[in-house]
Structures are given as structure tokens and as C-alpha cells.
């Protein structure tokens, strides 16, 4: 269902990104485009395919599911072009999880600086 909220420049705006990771994945993609990793029509073609595929199973509401499709597209794109192989992505994600779980509350969360420690953490 669509909302009918009228929200112009003068009214209280909706948040541009409802979750910080939406903003982050958007920015990574725009930045990669601007540094010449890919052109925008190529991105749009890949993203359209993901949306079409995901929309077969359920009606996408344009919120979280939209950015999940965006993230899925970027992960596949980076994997297929060898820039971020899935095993590297999984290892670093596991290292971040570990870092969050072991960092005392109130302290900034750091990844181990050493690449090898990431591998051992995720093993």
C-alpha cells in the first residue's frame, strides 16, 4: 500500500535513509561509480534484475527490502568482478561480529589490525 503523505520542502521531511546501513551501502555504490569502477547504467541494469527477481516472491515495499536488494546486487557485483571475493567478505564480517561481541560497552569497536588475525578470528 502506498502512503499518501504530502511532504514538500517546507514540511518536516521523512528521513532520507531510515537506517544507517542504507546510507552506507548507497554511498559505497555511488563512490565506486564515481571512481570509475562501473558506470551507472551497468549498476542500474544489475539492480533492476535483483528487484525483479526478489519481487517475484513478495511485493517489495521500497523500504528495507529495497536496500537489501541493493546490498545483494553490490555483493554479487563485487564478487563477480573479483574485487570482494565472498570468502573475504565472510571472514571480515565474522571479524566485525567478533569485535562487537568482545568490545566492552562504551568503547569504540575496532577490527584487529592484522589481516592474519582476521583469518584466525573467522576460522
Amino acid at each position: 500500500m502506498m502512503t499518501t503523505t504530502e511532504s514538500g520542502p517546507a514540511s518536516a521531511p521523512e528521513p532520507v535513509f531510515s537506517e544507517p546501513w542504507h546510507a552506507q551501502v548507497f554511498a559505497v555504490t555511488v563512490h565506486l561509480n564515481e571512481t570509475g569502477c562501473f558506470d551507472w547504467p551497468e549498476w542500474a541494469a544489475r539492480f533492476s534484475k535483483t528487484l525483479a527477481r526478489n519481487g517475484l516472491n513478495k511485493e517489495l515495499d521500497g523500504g528495507d527490502d529495497y536496500f537489501l536488494a541493493w546490498l545483494e546486487t553490490l555483493e554479487k557485483f563485487m564478487a563477480e568482478t573479483g574485487r570482494v571475493p565472498p570468502d573475504q567478505a565472510h571472514a571480515v564480517k565474522a571479524a566485525w561480529e567478533q569485535a562487537y561481541l568482545t568490545t566492552p560497552h562504551g568503547a569504540p569497536v575496532h577490527l584487529p589490525a592484522d589481516q592474519s588475525s582476521i583469518s584466525s578470528t573467522s576460522a
Binding site: V25, V92, K93, Y100, T103, H105, G106
Partner: peptide
């Protein structure tokens, strides 16, 4: 409080962080 994080960021947020870190 001085205790470890009980809550992880959501899974997609960690996936984005992983991409960002590698890139």
C-alpha cells in the same frame, strides 16, 4: 556500562561493513 555488546548491528549492516572494509 562496562560489559560486552549484547546486541550486534543487524546482519545487513555487518555485510555492508565487510564490503567497505575489504574495498
Amino acid at each position: 556500562h562496562d560489559h560486552a555488546h549484547a546486541l550486534l548491528p543487524p546482519d545487513p549492516a555487518l555485510r555492508v561493513k565487510a564490503l567497505e572494509t575489504v574495498l
